[in-house]
């Protein structure tokens, strides 16, 4: 078993709300570890709309999704949070009592945390790969259909059908080309979102007949026992069978509530109900802030998540430092807070 990471708080989700929770907790001397399934901070802001302008962040007439994330990362830097990317929280076990809660949190990457409180800031849930619209695909997943390349060796000497027109599809086309038996790239149109230089490199390989490019869409899968033998492809000239033994579909990500549904929390339409004083769930010590929670009058705004983080932090303090009295202070005037921020 891996070494247990002991911490005050585990924050599930490194979107804007989870990031700002680090700040509010940090002012109260509470250390946090953040876990996110994405390889980077920012959640939806960074994954869905990094370049889109946001107009309703107080004090910022306009800031882009990525700009907001960059600013938040700078703002929480003094508190030294630890990030665990590419991991999804799978299990949550209650160790303590309602008065003195404690939890054991496990990720799908095998990490184990022991913590006094859990702040669920998971937004719309965890980002997971979109499945192509083929009913039988699940039977082939993780044996011959993969949504990510974990080990390139799995594709050596294989005939690989890569589906999609973005950077993931094009990058893996180019990276796997030297080791695969044959690469076939398929996309629904002869127009690619990926970076122009990779599109050009792909077109050169196609021109010199070192790989194939097919314009069409998946119509069905052929094979048995999870082993793919061909993919039926709907093209402009009708349906054709493309022989292959590996498929890599890259259709982007979608959000699913995921394992949070199994943590014993009350749920209402895929959201976690909380009170509006502490933003605590039905399980003492587990908080839910940001888009994942619900309460009367809830607005799914980033600014609501920030407010919720500040209030939840107050109650987390009671669990982490049951003996200490919490003194309300302003960052403008408190030398104590300014010391924590590294500015005094």
């Amino acid at each position: 078993m891996s070494e247990i990471i002991k911490t005050d708080v585990v924050i599930v989700g490194a979107g804007p709300t989870g990031l700002f929770a680090v700040f509010e907790l940090g002012l109260l001397d509470i250390k946090a570890h953040l876990i996110d399934i994405l390889p980077k901070p920012g959640g939806q802001c960074a994954e869905l709309y990094p370049e889109k302008p946001i107009y309703d962040i107080p004090g910022f007439p306009m800031v882009t999704g990525q700009g907001l994330v960059d600013n938040l990362m700078q703002q929480i830097e003094p508190f030294g949070p630890t990030f665990h990317y590419n991991e999804m929280v799978e299990g949550l076990e209650v160790l303590g009592t309602p008065e003195a809660p404690a939890f054991r949190v496990r990720t799908d990457g095998g990490k184990v945390f022991e913590t006094k409180a859990v702040v669920v800031a998971a937004g719309g849930g965890s980002f997971q790969p979109k499945r192509p619209p083929v009913a039988t695909i699940e039977a082939y997943e993780n044996s011959s259909v993969f949504y990510a390349v974990r080990k390139m060796e799995d594709f050596r000497d294989r005939t690989v059908l890569i589906v999609g027109g973005g950077d993931s599809a094009l990058d893996w086309t180019l990276n796997l080309h030297p080791i695969a038996k044959r690469i076939i790239l398929m996309h629904r149109r002869d127009d690619f979102r990926a970076a122009p230089h990779s599109v050009n490199a792909m077109r050169e390989l196609v021109a010199s007949k070192q790989m194939d490019l097919l314009i069409g869409q998946i119509a069905g899968l052929k094979g048995e026992d999870g082993q793919l033998s061909a993919v039926s492809v709907k093209t402009a000239d009708g349906v054709v069978d493309v022989a292959c033994d590996r498929m890599l579909p890259f259709f982007g990500l979608t959000m699913k509530l995921g394992p949070i549904a199994d943590w014993g929390l009350n749920l209402h339409e895929q959201l976690v109900p909380v009170d509006t004083e502490k933003f605590e769930t039905n399980a003492p010590g587990i908080f839910a802030i940001g888009d994942i929670n619900t309460y009367p009058g809830k607005l799914k705004l980033i600014l609501s998540g920030f407010h919720e983080a500040a209030l939840a932090a107050q109650k987390v303090h009671r669990y982490v430092y049951p003996e200490k009295k919490l003194l309300f202070q302003y960052t403008t005037s408190s030398t104590n807070l300014q010391k924590k921020l590294g500015v005094s």
Partner: peptide, 10 residues
């Protein structure tokens, strides 16, 4: 068009 690449059953 780029975003439609991500839609289900286009």
């Amino acid at each position: 068009e780029d975003m439609l690449d991500f839609a289900f059953d286009v």
